[in-house]
Design a protein around this nucleic acid. Structure first.
Lengths: 340, 340
DNA sequence: ATGAAAGCGCTAACAC
DNA sequence: GTGTTAGCGCTTTCAT
């Protein structure tokens, strides 16, 4: 990189002190118009830009937020990231981003690495492995050191900080109720994310809806499929039960895959079987029939999380930590029957 | 943020100078074992971490790379980002990321903002608007100022820097040839990205393949659909020509949409009509029939781009700029006939 | 074996 | 109106 021009260069250029140049460029009343003019012009011509690293050192603020995302290929997280990015930019913050790739190790290393002054604060969602292992020491340390932090979506009660979460329980409850209202009697829950906090909450919402409607929970209908199992095989076994007439899938890939399997089994959708899934990405919209989804408003969550952190960084927030719960929306499409 | 511990604190603690502490912590032979031991232990106990901003100022290196991506919701770019992230982390670099959102203004502002010492270099792909307008001044400025830069995918000849590009021409040529070899006679090109450099290259590859096979290019089969036009309407008009038996879609959404339209028209895929599209995301794999795609190896491109930049930053690269061309792969699935 | 001093680029309090 | 000084946190050269 070509050496960039500094205050010192300009000062030498005009035989004035560095301080004078600094003041001239900030248009201080202390400096004569003549001096200011020539210095400002020179600075402009030579594309002077204050060195932000020096400013960061001085101000002890970097105007940079660290973002740790489990997986950017996941539509929901990508949307959240877009929201964070937008809000951050709007407020003059940059983003240092890291993909934990669901690895505890990577999450931990990143936090250690970035807690050193590079960042003003963190926004993060827990890696799957972190949630499974329940190892939150790195987060507790950060909190103890006073690192401002906002967690979203995949959170834990063990860490006291600001949080933004999806109303997963209510989303699942509402979706299940919708299936029931449209005539489904035997609704299966398809979860490939039962190891995540959000997966468990969604399952609870499903059970709650059944209870409200006096439908007994049939454990056979609560299908938990692990990452290593073959989804198709597992689903075919489930669908051997021909009485199943509704599917609540806890994320989109399993819904799209289920849709294909169901179609091959010659079910008519939504008449024979209805499908609703979480995460309103492209996948459910582009298949045929289009799948009814529960939107988690990812982008909005990102915006809220960023706003919360920035407010805290700039001292505009209450002293106590807050948890904001974002309501989901049911987006009705072709995989569910209309009410009435 | 609680004040973090500095060399000065430690120095006061033991009534030694800052320099001694610094040396002790870097295990210098100049310092007595006794002093080193107590200082190192104290530092560990109090979680001392060197302030990276101070180090950046000193070393004039931030070990940070700026990444400007047009749209993170795009599967290809998301993959590239993953690749960049992996390679960067591996080499001890952090990423400051920005989504230009296809806006020229945002791209330009970001570059201006980050050229101020925060970054060691840039990796970027041009915003659509930048390519359409052909305004590259911000990039030329950056190059003139000696900012190390690697462009990928959406590049321009006007900027002299390291580049990583997809072999779009060859990918389209190969795919078109594949369609021809499997019996397609009338192949339509469906482009919703004709304003992008890559879109134009792919179209050229298509034409080349036709020429090689002595098939005359029929302009009616070269379908360019703008963002604002209704895709479905446009496609239905195109498909009024019942002689069309092959579709080369230049990106995945249009392919999936076309697939649905074609299915509704009661064509049998691939017998009546074959489809191939660029970008090997989830979409083409989850629909039925699964669409044959051209993989651009997004993640690999990211890795290569990151490696190129890091090599240049660390002085391991040739002086002249290089352009690496990554070959595409055809991933055969159900939307094309088998050869023989 | 330890420390003083300079310097990375900048701002701000305080002279003159 | 302009300059001097100190300091942000750190490393390194050069004393002692």
């Amino acid at each position: 990189m070509k050496k960039r021009i500094t205050l010192k260069h300009i000062a030498n250029q005009f035989d004035v002190s560095i301080a004078t140049v600094s003041k001239a460029l900030s248009d201080s009343y202390e400096i004569s118009t003549k001096t200011k003019d020539k210095i400002q012009q020179y600075a402009k011509e030579h594309h002077y830009q204050p060195n932000s690293v020096a400013l960061s050192l001085l101000n002890k603020k970097t105007k940079t937020i660290g973002v740790i995302i489990p997986n950017i290929m996941n539509n929901f997280f990508a949307k959240v990231f877009v929201g964070i990015e937008e809000k951050a930019t709007e407020n003059g913050y940059s983003l240092i981003s890291c993909i934990s790739n669901e690895s505890h190790e990577k999450e931990l290393k990143t936090m250690e690495l970035l807690k050193n002054g590079t960042l003003d604060g963190f926004i993060l969602s827990l890696a799957e492995e972190t949630q499974v292992k329940g190892q939150y020491l790195h987060l507790k340390n950060a909190i103890n050191e006073g690192v401002p932090m906002v967690m979203f979506d995949r959170v834990t009660d063990e860490i006291k900080c600001d949080k933004v979460i999806v109303d997963d329980f209510e989303g699942a409850r509402h979706a299940t109720n919708h299936l029931i209202k449209t005539g489904c009697k035997r609704i299966a829950l398809i979860s490939v994310i039962d190891n995540l906090s959000v997966g468990k909450l969604r399952a609870k919402g499903y059970e709650e809806a059944l209870a409200e409607n006096d439908i007994e929970v049939d454990q056979k209908l609560i299908v938990k499929i692990g990452k290593r199992e073959d989804f198709e095989t597992a689903m075919k076994i489930v669908l051997a039960d021909k009485s199943i007439d509704g599917l609540l899938c806890l994320e989109e890939s399993s819904a799209v895959q289920s849709l294909e399997i169901v179609k091959h089994l010659n079910y008519i959708i939504p008449d024979d079987i209805s499908i609703i899934c979480f995460t309103n990405g492209k996948l459910p919209q582009y298949v045929s029939p289009k799948i009814t989804t529960i939107s988690q408003h990812g982008k909005y969550i990102g915006e809220v999380a960023a706003k919360m952190l920035i407010d805290r960084l700039e001292g505009n927030s209450e002293t106590s930590f807050q948890t904001k719960v974002i309501k989901t929306s049911l987006i009705e499409r072709e995989s569910t029957k209309k009410i009435n």
